[in-house]
Amino acid sequence: MSARIPSTGRRPPSVLGKRSRDLLVFLRDHTIVALVLLLCIFVFGIELIRPGTVTPTWLSNSLQFAAPLGILAAGQTLVMLTGGIDLSVASVATGAAYLLTTNVSLGGFAAVLIALAFGVIVGALNGIGVALLQVQPLVMTLGTGLMSGGVMIVYSQKMLASQARVPGFIQALGSGKLWGVAPLDLFLWVPLAALLIFGLSRTGFGRLLYAIGDNRLACHLTGIRVWRILLVNYILCSVVAAVGGLVLVGSTNAADLGLADVYLLPSVAAVIIGGTSIFGGRGGYGGSIVGAVILTVLTSLLTLLDVPEPIKQILYGAIILVLAAAYARLTG
């Protein structure tokens, strides 16, 4: 008979009390609450560092700045729900903005159409690769991103830069405010967000996005033509990215060929922090919105800290990692 041996379970007994464990469980099931709490902490931090900063105007400005990122993250959310990723969103946004400003002479409306058409083309290319030829989204979108970036460089060489101009209504959309408080871009972003949240939870298309992200083979065996949905989805993503580019150029009032580059990482990070699984099948746009706002507030927090640009960049990246890791721990 073997001797009595104490338990060999390696996990130490939980040091957390029951109440805090309950809280953790609650947060795991309602991650959006955790995100909003985090947002409040950041806002509080800003007020602590520089009292008097957090005013209605500041809030309104923050939302205005968050809109382009929020819109880019919308497209990214759609794609990531299906288990993909779109690394061409930044190039598409830049390209759309650049095409808009250089085609204003054709009329504002036509310029917007050209810009959106650019999104459709890149999105269709992504969609054909990913949906029909089953290329990995990462490489496909990286390739199309590189390609469309290159096309823009060539295009910029052929165009006379003096013609470039941001049309008035786009400028108003990107930087205007209604009665001085309500940012105009919210009037685009909020309906888009509502449409997306409704679409994801209450339409067949939304259901299918989750289903494909969860198990593409099961969808195929259930008689679903997966490629159709993916194709439409990648086009949607790129068009939304193009819209994001238009809002962005409205706020900067000038398009250069690096306009949206800085938005690539945040567009992915906002979705991840917002709780959408990169492997697909889980998440939603609600979280991405909060993620986008958190990242925007984080940027202004870092600006307030008054540190050099490189340090800001390092801190920003590090905080994204910490947030994503915390999220993975919480839900994993």
């Binding site: 067949g204 259901r207 289903a211 099961a218 679903i224 033509r225 699984s277 099948g281």
Partner: peptide, 19 residues
């Protein structure tokens, strides 16, 4: 090969309706 492991029973059962 047939099921969506992360989704609800309801969504799994209703899946073929969206063909």
């Amino acid at each position: 090969q047939a099921l969506l492991q992360q989704r609800a029973i309801r969504e799994n059962v209703a899946l073929p309706m969206f063909r």
